[in-house]
Design a protein around this nucleic acid. Structure first.
Lengths: 152, 152
DNA sequence: GCACGTTTTCAGTATTGCCTGAAGTCAATG
DNA sequence: CATTGACTTCAGGCAATACTGAAAACGTGC
């Protein structure tokens, strides 16, 4: 890992740390975006970034569960390899629909305590969630179309 | 604050805490959604939620800076009052455009270290940000139209 | 089924960031 | 100009979380 690479990993790490991510999680993400080859073992990542094996194991699993990273098996090699999943960023955006729905549920859970004074404080959130729940699927379709075009 | 209200505040707090918000920040938000009257002083909020004056001051300021909460001056009363801003949720969504742009910048900052192996690991993020930067404004317009309709 | 490297787990440690309480600042009022 | 109350700031305590290191578990290839 040269200086420029190190700097970029740091930039990515700083960015996501601002939104509450763990430093190691973000560093792994940044590194998997630019490392060569794209496929790497846990031991390599630990060595490259100066992290312990335990940390890499834990944070890598988090990435896999989020759908950002996937495992690659190489025949004849017992070592697992990991790489940034193609379309990883798109997948994250697509999964946003679940969070939108959760927000809507949160608003509806407020029905029992709707304030007489300016009840729209609660209903507004529900309306917003409904709006996005409606708009998101077609938006994701346009996004996918864009993706196809770019990779074609 | 009755039991049902307390329960709702807790639900809101739990939700946002999952995404890394400070507990006090989230409790204040939940309470400002349902309290009556909608306008409240710092001292009242502290009393209602069992928080210290310092915490309320700090977290309330965070809400104001994010545009979720606004201050209301009452003539002849030296005490400042705070309330959830009408259209607060919409404003937050509208400001999302800035974060989209920041993501795009992060991707473009990777140009200097573009991997020869699967460079789309970096460019994909940039394309995604560009897509959303394009789609967001018209989406926000549709959202605003919806808002007018609902409040009319 | 054995042996070996890989991966996971977990107890302990370090670090981070929240919250409190008290002291300080400011503004309005008489 | 002094007094009063509201608000802010900040050092310190504390709780939550991330990270490490080592040991246990796993699973692959022989």
């Amino acid at each position: 890992m040269d200086d420029a690479q190190h700097q970029y990993v740091d930039k990515v790490a700083t960015f996501f740390t601002l939104f509450g991510s763990a430093r190691a999680w973000a560093e792994i993400l940044g590194w998997l975006m630019i490392c060569e080859p794209a496929e790497r073992t846990q031991a390599e990542i630990a060595e490259d970034l100066g992290l312990s094996a335990g940390t890499v194991s834990t944070q890598l699993r988090a990435h896999v569960q989020l759908g950002m990273v996937e495992q690659v098996r190489v025949r004849g090699d017992r070592t697992q390899r990991y790489r940034l999943r193609p379309g990883a960023w798109y997948a994250v955006m697509a999964s946003e629909l679940e969070r939108i729905r959760a927000l809507g549920d949160l608003a509806r859970a407020g029905d029992g305590v709707l304030p007489r004074d300016r009840p729209e404080r609660v209903t507004e959130l529900g309306d917003l969630a409904d709006f996005f729940a409606r708009e998101w699927p077609p938006l994701m379709e346009r996004m996918t179309a864009e993706l196809e075009k770019g990779s074609a």
